[in-house]
Design a protein around this nucleic acid. Structure first.
Length: 420
DNA sequence: AACGCTAGCAGGAATGAATG
DNA sequence: CATTCATTCCTGCTAGCGTT
């Protein structure tokens, strides 16, 4: 993607493409599915205790006609299994012996098939999503949850919201996922959906792909994940400290999002910029290096906040009807050199031109105001020499060994920047 | 290996304005 | 009025981290 990543060792930016790698779990999963392919009579991957061994293997050719893609997949799986075995052979810890023990060990990781999404096929992911949705729906029905989180947690005699008159079970959010009550609910959910969906021939079966396997443990795991997410919400409502933490996180999240949008807009202007300046500005467009766009100062002091807001409103020249509109202050990174900020300004100019040229069909954007303030956070990742403001470095970094080490910089500037 | 927590992300909802 | 589109923000899911 970004060309500078390829030539120079970086600290591993967020955009680095990762070569796909199979985890042990995925190996196990592949192996397991292979077993099933060989012996589809096994209706489901049985829970761990008893897994009849491959036993008399059925010639795949004898199986009911399969389309080529299935055949191909089977081939791939065969190869994977071969690799798996090879790996095993070279593993000194598992000497070949009476194989009962060995097998047990091997089965353990395959408790789950769809638990993690990485490495799953498209079909598997589809079914995975369907199952998670079912688990969630069932969980809501069972615990009497609506999409609206009910406000009162400790008040039993709540308002007459006519809810399902079902025998409602309630999660114990104060406890963990191991709490007996919670476990009971997980099992109930898992059993229900397992019964409904594990047999493709049954009338209740409604998954997109009948040949995708899953285990009951998968379902329990989905239910747990669900519970955890609900618990987080519950804690936010019941623990002021947690609420505060979450609010802060949400704010940071919003901030990061704005940076990302800023970057995306500027990226759209890159082709035009290249035409104009004959070099590539993409090196400047790292999310972290975009300006902050803040609604208010990071403080608890109400006066400071109110004052800040007043100044923003004034600078934005809001009309009488717009007094409550959003206004953001742009706070640029202090570390950046003139050349870097100029590059971004040039990009923004193009962005603006392009916006003005388009038929205006957009809602008004939030007004951005700059008071010329900067922040002094260190740049994330590795910057190029031309990006660094010498005076900022002298003032904030120079002499502080820890910070000096934290600043990472390439030795050479990209073409068209700095001296090059 | 499982747990709890969190940052980051994708997808989509909501919003507002111009257009047919 | 419905449609279309860009912008902004929210929700829920996931991976990754540190702990048990």
């Amino acid at each position: 993607m970004a060309y500078y990543n390829s030539s120079i060792p970086t600290t591993g930016g967020p955009n680095d493409p990762q070569p796909p790698q199979l985890s042990p779990e995925q190996w196990a999963h592949a192996y397991r599915q292979f077993q099933y392919q060989l012996n589809p009579q096994l209706p489901t991957p049985p829970p761990p205790p008893h897994l009849p061994l491959p036993g008399p293997v059925i010639d795949p050719a004898l199986q009911p006609s399969q389309d080529t893609s299935t055949d191909q997949r089977l081939d791939a799986l065969e190869r994977e299994v071969e690799l798996l075995r090879a790996e095993k052979r070279t593993n000194p810890e598992t000497p070949a012996g009476p194989s009962k023990k060995r097998r047990k060990k091997q089965q353990k990781p395959s408790l789950y098939i769809l638990r993690h999404s990485t490495g799953l096929s498209k079909e598997q992911n589809r079914v995975r999503g369907q199952l998670m949705k079912k688990v969630k729906t069932e969980g809501m029905r069972l615990t009497g949850r609506t999409t609206e989180p009910d406000s009162e947690a400790d008040d039993e005699s709540d308002s007459p919201t006519t809810r399902t008159p079902h025998p409602v079970m309630s999660y114990n959010f104060a406890a963990t996922v191991e709490d007996p009550i919670n476990v009971k609910i997980f099992n109930r959910i898992a059993d229900l959906i397992w019964t409904e969906q594990h047999d493709p021939k049954s009338a209740t079966f409604s998954l997109a792909h009948a040949d995708v396997l899953f285990t009951r443990e998968d379902l329990v795991e989905f239910a747990k994940t669900n519970f955890r997410s609900w618990k987080t919400k519950w804690r936010g409502k019941n623990d002021p400290e947690v609420a505060q933490r979450q609010a802060k996180a949400a704010q940071k999240d919003r901030q990061d999002l704005r940076k990302k949008e800023l970057k995306a807009n500027r990226i759209k202007a890159v082709p035009e910029y290249k035409k104009k300046f004959k070099h590539d500005p993409i090196c400047v467009l790292e999310t972290d290096w975009m300006s902050d766009e803040i609604s208010g100062p990071d403080t608890d002091d109400e006066d400071t906040k109110a004052d800040h807001r007043r100044r923003l409103v004034k600078a934005a020249r809001l009309g009488p009807l717009q007094q409550n509109d959003d206004v953001w202050e742009v706070v640029r990174p202090g570390f950046q050199s003139l050349e870097m900020s100029q590059t971004k300004d040039d990009l923004d100019k193009i962005v603006k031109e392009q916006r003005d040229n388009k038929p205006k069909r957009v809602r008004g954007r939030v007004t951005r105001i700059s008071f010329g303030n900067t922040h002094d956070r260190l740049p994330a990742g590795t910057i190029y020499p031309f990006m660094l403001s010498q005076s900022w470095y002298d003032e904030h970094i120079e002499g502080n060994e820890e910070l000096e080490n934290e600043m990472k910089m390439y030795t050479k500037d990209p073409k068209g920047f700095g001296d090059s």
